[in-house]
Amino acid sequence: MTTPIIRVKDVHKSYGKGPNRFDALKGVTFDINEGESVAIIGKSGSGKSTLMHVLALLDAPTAGTVELEGIDTSTLKGKKLNRARNKTFGFVFQQFFLTANISVLENVMLPMKIAGVRRSERKARAHTALEQLEMDDKASNKAVNLSGGQKQRSVIARALVNNPRIIFADEPTGNLDTATGGNVEDILFALNRDKGITLIVVTHDDELAARCDRRIYIRDGLLVNDTTEVAA
């Protein structure tokens, strides 16, 4: 059996201390295999965002372990951790988080800039990524002047540009109309299907969740249903 790309073992995450202590995750265990598309579904306050943050190594669990390709992520510190984030993950956010007043190209180049890729290579790769998303003609536009769908496609280009193993999409269609949202979904699933990029979508949209291979339901910090288990 191959090592799962992410293995979550009895993860707890709590905020605050004493009487103000709030347990966002109360012991969650599951594996995600490479190339899967997984939806993490739950109401707001269910702990699904916290779970995504823990999976994306933005936050360390209070207890339990998260393994990335078999490596306990609590052993990753400083530069190693930054490198793992930069090389492994791509992010797509509901609110895009594009820097408004710089060009689309600059926005897309940001992860490579952080990785220290040479400028010429950066440009070439960013253009390739934008072409893939049919956004290359907008490369020199300022991000602020794009439509919602164009913004989200730029964000996907940015997520793609470092050839990540995993793309985290946090409510990727939340700010888009149905048609544009569907379009963006198609792009994400195409990437998952054609490039084998593991897709982890955090959403409360059942339609989007239904398109995923697998759905993990979270309620009150606990995993209440995992569709793979049902299927098995």
């Binding site: 994306a56 984030r85 090389k87 992860p111």
Partner: peptide
């Protein structure tokens, strides 16, 4: 937001 994003993308605090 931008700082958070850069950190999420693996930019170190020192940078």
């Amino acid at each position: 937001r931008e700082i958070g994003l850069m950190k999420a993308m693996g930019m170190g605090g020192g940078k």
